[in-house]
Simulated assay, not measured.
Amino acid sequence: MDAVRLIVTSGRALAAGGEEADILAEVWQAQALAQAIGSRLAVYGPPELRGEALGLTELAGRGCGVLHTPELAPGELRAAQLTELGDARQALLRLAGLLGEIGIALVAVASSADDETTYWSCVEAIDAADESRDRVLEMLRKLADRDVEPERTAPWPEREPVLREAG
């Protein structure tokens, strides 16, 4: 499945909410998906994105690591369903939005957490999601810079030839 479809699916699942455990499982799924997208970009993406993509992979992995790994049935791990990136710009735009939604969901869970472990896990996951989003935004900036054509400038101003009238 392509990245954009998986990101949209994750966003919808996160928006559906539910119990604290359900929200944290969706956050974990989204972070795992961000990690997979970063990994794919690091290997197959444009060369100018590879460093940031590796950073995204590491940060999203940290986001997964601070949360309890959910018990998923075979085939439920969205990151494992990633088969193609499709349009990198579109995937990164959607991923930036999803990472922002993750942060908001985690703030809500942290605010209502009954125990300190959940609270601090959410705080660390918020940090990882925020830093991951920063990496995605940097990749988008690099793509935009790449697409801007430098202005052609002549070494001196071009002038139209002056024609004299015969007379």
Results as ranks from 00 to 15, higher is better:
103 G>W: 10
85 L>Y: 07
60 A>P: 03
106 L>P: 02
127 D>R: 12
40 R>C: 01
38 G>Y: 12
45 G>M: 03
22 D>R: 10
68 H>W: 01
37 I>L: 08
156 W>I: 07
78 R>P: 03
41 L>Q: 04
103 G>L: 06
116 E>L: 14
96 A>H: 05
42 A>T: 02
16 A>N: 00
57 T>M: 10
112 S>Y: 12
121 S>A: 15
48 E>Q: 09
68 H>E: 12
99 L>A: 05
72 L>I: 10
143 L>Y: 10
44 Y>V: 12
161 P>H: 03
4 V>K: 06
26 E>D: 12
159 R>N: 04
59 L>T: 14
95 L>K: 15
125 A>W: 10
130 D>R: 15
27 V>K: 13
125 A>E: 07
127 D>T: 10
130 D>E: 14
79 A>P: 04
54 L>E: 07
31 Q>V: 07
20 E>Y: 02
65 G>T: 00
128 A>M: 06
62 R>Y: 11
127 D>E: 04
2 D>E: 13
126 I>V: 13
65 G>A: 13
134 D>Y: 02
47 P>T: 11
33 L>C: 01
102 I>C: 14
41 L>R: 00
12 R>P: 03
131 E>F: 08
121 S>L: 01
167 G>K: 09
126 I>Q: 13
17 G>F: 06
51 G>F: 03
45 G>A: 07
39 S>P: 01
15 A>S: 02
120 W>D: 09
3 A>G: 15
20 E>C: 03
99 L>M: 04
153 T>W: 00
